[in-house]
Design a protein around this nucleic acid. Sequence first.
DNA 1: TTGAAAGCGCTAACAC
DNA 2: GTGTTAGCGCTTTCAA
Lengths: 313, 313
Amino acid sequence: MTASRALRGAPDVSRENIDKVERAARETGYVGNPLATAFSNSKSNLIGVVVPSLNNIVFAEVMSGIAQGIDGSGLKPMFGVTDYDPVKEFELIKSLLSWNPAGLILTGLDQSEETRDLLSVAAVPVVQIMDTDGDALGAAIGFSHFQAGREMAQALIARGRRRFGYVGCGLANDLRAGRRLEGFKSALDAAGLALVAMRHDPEHSSTEAGRRITAEILHAHPDLDCIYYSNDDVALGGVFSCLAQGIAVGDALLLAGFNGLEMTRTLPVRIATTITPRRQIGFAAGRYLVEAKQGAPMRPNHKTVLPTVLSLP
Amino acid sequence: MTASRALRGAPDVSRENIDKVERAARETGYVGNPLATAFSNSKSNLIGVVVPSLNNIVFAEVMSGIAQGIDGSGLKPMFGVTDYDPVKEFELIKSLLSWNPAGLILTGLDQSEETRDLLSVAAVPVVQIMDTDGDALGAAIGFSHFQAGREMAQALIARGRRRFGYVGCGLANDLRAGRRLEGFKSALDAAGLALVAMRHDPEHSSTEAGRRITAEILHAHPDLDCIYYSNDDVALGGVFSCLAQGIAVGDALLLAGFNGLEMTRTLPVRIATTITPRRQIGFAAGRYLVEAKQGAPMRPNHKTVLPTVLSLP
DNA sequence: TTGAAAGCGCTAACAC
DNA sequence: GTGTTAGCGCTTTCAA
């Protein structure tokens, strides 16, 4: 028992014994068994990370931020991919919970009723990342997608744009892209404007779809002076479509994406985008769970809104 | 015991009792405790996934493939990022091993001596992904980077290219990029050619670096007719550099990358690239561990070479 | 400040 | 085919 106490830094162990134990541990190459610890106190140093997709660099960067945020804490991340399927998400969270994790990092605020029930029973620290539009279960760390869409529209209007098109992919699943669109439209509406044209593609977002749909929408509406995209991946397709057709991007036609991927800054033409703090979000989510593990008070329903930055040509 | 046997499908339980147990489990909402199971038989359903970086879409896609490969098997992936640091890799693997994982998926064949020792003691199924140039510890699933570089050079020579430049990022860490370069040079050599110019950047690969270094190398060597890049991210920067300067890509100057990112197919110009089966690699690695869990014989030192595909303009 | 006892939920080994 | 026993390595609780 004294050894157990000494090794995990419990109070009330004599200096002398702490030294003895540490020396012995070093000499024998002792390493604790986290499985036994987790089993014994029904709380593991595992955390669950649930993302909708890994086909996009965005969630990889979030996970990279999480890894940084928990570095050195002894927490180990387990991950699962939902493919934007609420049923998969439920099953995933259920199986993650069976490991008695020290916390859960979920994407978005739109978990199903069933999932919310499961989590409220579990009494595990939960962080919902990326989004702050809606009711948070645990701590929410992210930003308002509605607001992001609105700000982009306002900025574009201020730059004199009037004839707006929208090109999106996978909106049925990607609810946050939907909210950006809502915000965008609300700002247009407030300015007495409306979308001139709008095209979706049911597939996952891709530059290929962006390129194709941009060609279509411009063919049908050659008088657009601005296109808003569901994200930068799709917007890059738009850029390539215009480059291939010799349409001057940024001048007669402004393109606007979302995320602020590094590539938007190295293109031969400039596009508008919203730079999102995705690495910071992951980092903050990781830190939150580290602090929760160390006994910090949890902040259910508390939203941390991190700033996004508009990048305009 | 009968319930325990019935629930995990052990043999020698009567049909009648299996039904009874399953019914009771359903009625009471029983879910097993994987922590107890793992603790009891010192073998968990966790697997460890170690990647060098998550700033690149490539490893995100690999992880996506892994998630698919283990789907439905009950295995749960834990992940860690090494930042190409062998010491971090060692520590990470050590801490992963303390969870008695059902297997480990590591990137590359270049683990340190210390790490190899650790793994040989552990008696855990190991899959090394992405690379097959070198000595495999466990099962290796990937392809030869040397060969990929060589084939690219051969194809480019066959297309009449003669004055080659090379632009790379982070070669000190990214040993696989280094081997592609070696393969590339070996083919040049065999054809009586050599690199005319070569520039590295110590940073991580990025389109920004690619753009900058391409401008530099072309300024110093305007007579190059082909540039080979350490990967597509860097090559895209090269494309943007050329587009910005009005240099016709694909004609007087051919650019060649590596990975076959989707974007290389939607650019307004065509570049050469090697399409790598990264999702399949992840999937196969996941499947291998599922099979190992189910008692399939392990294949230490066995290499599975998956085909890469040259994509040329 | 230290230690003894008991138990976390499961499974391997053995007896029936 | 089923049940009993013991133990995995740790921590909580309680007594000293």
